[in-house]
């Protein structure tokens, strides 16, 4: 797969339209890498010139900041802002709502001002404008339920864009009991992804998978690589016959 970096564009003297912020999950997690590749497919199909930072990208600092480690957050954020500003980046797309939230809401206070969109917003506008179309019918007849991520939903009040992406499919969409502003967390945020649970009687992802299973859905659609991991783990543990996909994977099916 051919993806150019900002450095490569710069050496050609071209400024790409968009920066694709891949994030740690999108770069290193084998399941989330598929979403990164899917977004590259989408961007190519829509003929949008884009770049990644490649090795110059670091974690946005979201998990460090929420764990309470402001030093590590500032270190990462200030370095990232240096890099982004050096390339005069104007517009960023992310596949991760945590990266999205940090870049959009928290970098301005540190001197990083960009137009930041989440890929569900990009998908919505490309579908609405007819620049991309639903491809494939692998999931024909499957019932889909959409899981709101906290950082796209409550944190940024984006509930409709991902849902309107799913409306481009012929599939039946069912809502979970707790959805939109009342959506239940997958259990990964606030640094929980990187630690053991505190003592309790159930894992949060199991609680959410139970709720998703109650809708009778065959597919849980997510918009966050961490929700994806949590939901997948939950489905496996409960031995449910449910698949978990990022919304982009439901649009370009293979």
């Amino acid at each position: 797969m051919e993806v150019k970096t900002m450095a490569e564009f710069q050496s050609e003297g071209i400024q790409p339209e968009l920066l694709f912020w891949v994030g740690c999950a999108g770069s290193f997690d084998s399941r989330a890498q598929k979403i990164s590749k899917k977004l590259v497919e989408v961007l190519n199909m829509a003929k949008i010139s884009f770049a990644i930072l490649g090795q110059e990208e670091s974690c946005t600092g979201d998990p460090a900041r929420r764990a309470g480690n402001e030093f590590v957050f500032q270190m990462l954020a200030l370095q990232n802002i240096e890099t982004l500003n050096a390339y005069a980046v104007k517009k960023i797309v992310t596949t991760c709502p945590h990266c999205f939230n940090t870049l959009k809401n928290e970098y301005p206070a540190l001197g990083g001002n960009y137009e930041v969109i989440h890929h569900s917003q990009l998908l919505k506008s490309l579908l609405d404008e007819g620049r991309i179309k639903v491809e494939g019918d692998v999931f024909k007849g499957k019932k889909i339920t959409y899981h709101d991520s906290c950082y796209l939903g409550r944190a940024n009040d984006i509930y409709e864009a991902p849902r309107s992406v799913l409306e481009h499919l012929d599939n039946e969409i069912v809502e979970m009991h707790r959805s939109r502003a009342n959506g239940l967390c997958c259990g990964a945020g606030g640094g929980q992804m990187f630690k053991e649970d505190e003592p309790g009687n159930k894992r949060i992802n199991i609680e959410r998978v139970d709720e998703a299973a109650n809708t009778g859905a065959d597919i849980i659609a997510v918009n966050c690589p961490f929700c994806l991991t949590m939901m997948n783990d939950g489905v496996k543990e409960k031995d449910k016959n449910i698949m978990v996909y990022d919304i982009s994977e439901l649009i370009l099916q293979k």
Binding site: C150, C185, G187, G190, K195, D197, E198, I204
Partner: peptide, 8 residues
């Protein structure tokens, strides 16, 4: 330590 910062 149990908080997921989910804002619920």
């Amino acid at each position: 330590h149990a908080c997921t910062t989910c804002n619920a």
